[in-house]
Amino acid sequence: MNENENTETPASDRDLSNAPDMIVCEGVSKWYGDFQALDEVSATIKEQEVVVVLGPSGSGKSTWIRCINRLEHHQEGRIEVDGIELTNDLRNIEKVRSEVGMVFQQFNLFPHLKVLDNVTLAPIWVRKKPKAEAEEQAAALLERVGIPEQADKYPGQLSGGQQQRVAIARALAMEPRIMLFDEPTSALDPEMIKEVLDVMKELALSGMTMMVVTHEVGFAKEVADRIIFMDDGQIVETGTPEIFFSNPTEDRTKLFLSQIL
């Protein structure tokens, strides 16, 4: 999918070596009881970089991405987001969360609020924006994700693809510097996947720092600067899409690719 000729510069051709670090993970470990979900995960993500995290289910991809805005606590190691370290300090957590937008597999829109109010809720109460300004911004964001006409509907009245695009608009309304995507297309019907991926592609080209957990190989090949492959809570291999898909080094990566390609 998405194998159309792209005349724009592929994201992976950009040189980001001089960009500042946005997310720094050093030896992050996490256990659920006796089960180790993350095992010494270390990675650095640069500003404007688009990183796609691949791996079989249960490999710890979602746990890792959820640690980055503290929906899960890591137990060892350190995570730094835009220079703010995530500890038990509530102020740091709030600061990080207002800079990091997140999109979930199940959309998690607020079903009792209209689409417009879903988008304006956080800007009004967290950013303390005037209502009119927040609504103007929300309308512009809905336009950007391609559903300006749905503003007055409730989430339950929208299709899955439209709901996920509202969720992206809701995250963007906080003007985040980083966007996290936790399997954003896994709960969607095939014909709706493209409309969500298109929005994400546009977002990547606009220079957003993105970390995407997904199974969409086409998206990874086309948009990612770097692929991170995880298994058993560890980072097994990282590399640019070209090298990762055509010439992987690790056996586990080869096995995984042979199963999904």
């Binding site: 709030e94 979930f104 199940q106 998690n108 607020f110 956080a122 109460w125 967290v126 309304a173």
Partner: peptide, 26 residues
């Protein structure tokens, strides 16, 4: 659903704001 609380926290609402605007109405 737990996802509602997570979504509220992820957009930056505090615990009390999440309770008032997201959890209690539902």
């Amino acid at each position: 659903p737990k996802g509602q609380i997570e979504a509220a926290r992820a957009v930056g609402l505090r615990q009390s704001q999440a309770l008032r605007h997201v959890i209690l109405p539902q």
